[in-house]
Simulated assay, not measured.
Amino acid sequence: MGNGKENSLTILIADDHHLVRQGLRSLIERSQTQYNISDVATGEQAWQFISQYQPDLAILDISMGDLSGLKVCEHVKRRKLRTRIIFLSMHDDVKVIHRAFEVGADAYLSKSEAFDTLNQALQTVAAGHSFISPNIESELARYRAATTQSLLTAREKQIVSYITQGKSNRQIADALCISIKTVDNHRTKAMRKLGVNKAAELVKYGLEEGLVV
């Protein structure tokens, strides 16, 4: 149920533990920001509420009955609803965290540090930015880097390393005894996999990942 405040940001809390929902509500209400808070116990209820009312923010647990928080987030992003999604979970598996952002999460927090970071996350996400708990940010960055590198073939990594050194397609082709067209194909595939559109971004990636011939 809502708290009756008007002209304030609306928040939905979805968690299958009553005490957790009440604790989060109490924690949020301590802030100086005015929020209109509602809460539900299952993923199904969360999706019904979001699809009907489109609150500004939804705080979701990962596991909530038959419809997980991840599925709820997928539905929200697929329908392009205005609600921004914050995951608050005991799951600290970096693969789960990575998956949460893959499906469109705007923030991810660990329940163990909610007291310190929840209100900061709410303000950050409400302002249109993403947020991740400081204690898992570096681990996620390492996982993403390793995952991205594993997507590139050995030849693609080799091409990127030459590009990082400032070599032209002609120079790379001569060094590897392949055609310029083949170099360009590998370069295009690598850029597509890495999600970059400019050579400068490819060079930046190569430098950050330490790719060398």
Score class of each variant (00 low, 15 high):
83 T>D: 08
127 A>E: 11
143 Y>I: 03
157 K>E: 11
54 Q>G: 04
91 H>G: 00
78 R>E: 15
71 K>Q: 10
152 L>M: 10
140 L>V: 00
82 R>M: 11
119 N>C: 12
172 I>Q: 13
98 H>D: 13
71 K>E: 11
70 L>Q: 07
83 T>I: 03
119 N>Q: 10
170 R>I: 09
60 L>S: 06
56 D>H: 15
125 V>L: 10
167 K>G: 00
142 R>M: 09
166 G>S: 07
61 D>K: 01
158 Q>R: 09
163 I>V: 15
132 I>Q: 09
111 K>C: 01
69 G>I: 00
81 L>D: 01
85 I>N: 00
138 S>K: 13
118 L>A: 05
127 A>I: 05
142 R>K: 12
56 D>C: 06
123 Q>C: 02
84 R>Q: 07
137 E>K: 11
116 D>N: 12
96 V>M: 04
143 Y>S: 00
169 N>I: 06
128 G>E: 10
122 L>N: 02
173 A>R: 13
133 S>G: 10
56 D>W: 13
137 E>N: 06
142 R>F: 10
95 K>E: 04
124 T>M: 12
103 V>D: 00
80 K>R: 14
124 T>Y: 09
97 I>E: 04
66 D>Y: 01
139 E>R: 04
83 T>L: 03
154 A>S: 12
119 N>V: 06
107 A>T: 06
148 T>L: 03
170 R>H: 10
65 G>W: 15
146 A>M: 08
65 G>K: 14
69 G>Q: 02
164 T>S: 13
134 P>A: 01
59 I>S: 02
137 E>V: 02
166 G>C: 12
96 V>H: 03
134 P>M: 02
144 R>P: 15
145 A>L: 11
146 A>C: 01
115 F>D: 08
156 E>V: 06
